[in-house]
Design a binder for these strands. Structure first.
Length: 305
DNA sequence: ATCCACTTGTCGCCTATGAA
DNA sequence: TTCATAGGCGACAAGTGGAT
């Protein structure tokens, strides 16, 4: 499957409200949104849930691989290996997933680097293998009626290593012209070290190291024409050594706080110049989302509250 | 002068990983 | 199987500096 869902811009813009920032270096831009929770209501909220559901579809497929059987449907959560994904994972993990999905959401709807036709064919959640293994233990305990607290420290797993998402521009002939490497973070409180790490991680010159192989692997599992078109385009890119595409880099930063000092400060990331930990020369895009109640967003989107 | 937001460093907790 | 190492993350505390 190729991710397809999109929002109508009006309700989306009412939920994540753009805050204008001063503009600096043309090779670098920062955009900022603040959440207005009151706008996350029906019917728009259902759209949001469906959007996230689609983002997790591939990881669910992965969890179910080898369990498919004509006689058994996954309607019964007790036998579905993808049950409770990602609803019963640790809050910190869900925050991370939120951040990754927000990165895709932002570039798909609001553009980046002067282009408005980016596509994220699939998310890479299935490669968060430590967490997928952990889910089996969770489902097992649920099935046996063992009490368990999803937010207890032992339920926390480290985040997926590697880049978080890849967006592309592909023309009608199936040729990819641009690649956007998205590194996503999502924290309860601001942390400059984490922002620096995200920029360091982006500073990897080799595109081949950044989730390409994983994405091609995913697309290989789907035999729809569209998935194969994407796969062929990515393979071509891989063979050509990525010399034919324009690269963009992006840090997508979700945070449960809003700066208060100095009074004129709107964003945690610098709106004027790119982070000193970013060492490459590609156009760099910063995306920042501020939530006054991050726990509430996670509850709404992942926990049905 | 005081308060409070913010930064930075450190610590402990926990898991994954791989070597012995 | 056991052990050491590395790494992600939250919590805490001390210090800096803006705001009033």
């Amino acid at each position: 499957m190729i991710r397809k869902k999109r929002f109508q811009l009006t309700p989306l813009n009412n939920w994540l409200v753009s805050v204008p920032l001063p503009v600096g270096d043309p090779q670098y831009s920062l955009r900022l949104w603040r959440e207005d929770r009151s706008a996350l209501a029906a019917p728009f909220k259902d759209e949001v849930l469906a959007y996230f559901d689609e983002a997790f579809e591939d990881a669910r497929k992965c969890l179910r691989e080898g369990f498919e059987d004509d006689l058994c449907s996954f309607a019964d959560p007790a036998v579905d290996p993808a049950a409770n994904f990602p609803g019963l994972l640790h809050r910190v993990t869900q925050q991370g997933y939120l951040g990754e999905a927000l990165g895709a959401l932002a570039v798909e709807h609001w553009g980046a680097g002067g282009h408005n036709d980016w596509q994220v064919p699939a998310m890479l959640f299935r490669f968060h293998s430590a967490e997928l293994q952990h889910l089996a233990s969770i489902n097992d305990r649920i099935a046996r009626g063992v009490p368990f607290n999803q937010d207890a420290t032992p339920e926390m797993r480290p985040g997926r290593t590697g880049d978080d998402a890849l967006a592309f521009r592909m023309d009608d002939e199936g040729v990819i012209s641009d690649v956007l490497v998205i590194e996503a973070k999502c924290l309860g409180a601001n942390n400059n070290g984490t922002i620096a790490e995200a920029h360091e991680k982006l500073s990897t010159p080799l595109l081949k190291n950044s989730g390409f192989r994983e994405l091609i692997n995913i697309l290989d599992k789907y035999d729809t024409g569209e998935a194969q078109k994407w796969r062929a385009a990515l393979l071509e890119l891989w063979r050509s050594g990525h010399m034919t595409v324009s690269r963009y880099d992006c840090v997508s930063y979700g945070v449960g706080a809003q700066p208060k000092r100095p009074k004129t400060r709107e964003s945690w990331m610098d709106p004027l110049k790119s982070h000193s930990s970013y060492t490459l020369k590609y156009p760099l895009v910063g995306l920042e989302y501020q939530f006054l109640d991050l726990a509430g967003v996670v509850d709404s989107i992942f926990r049905g509250k």
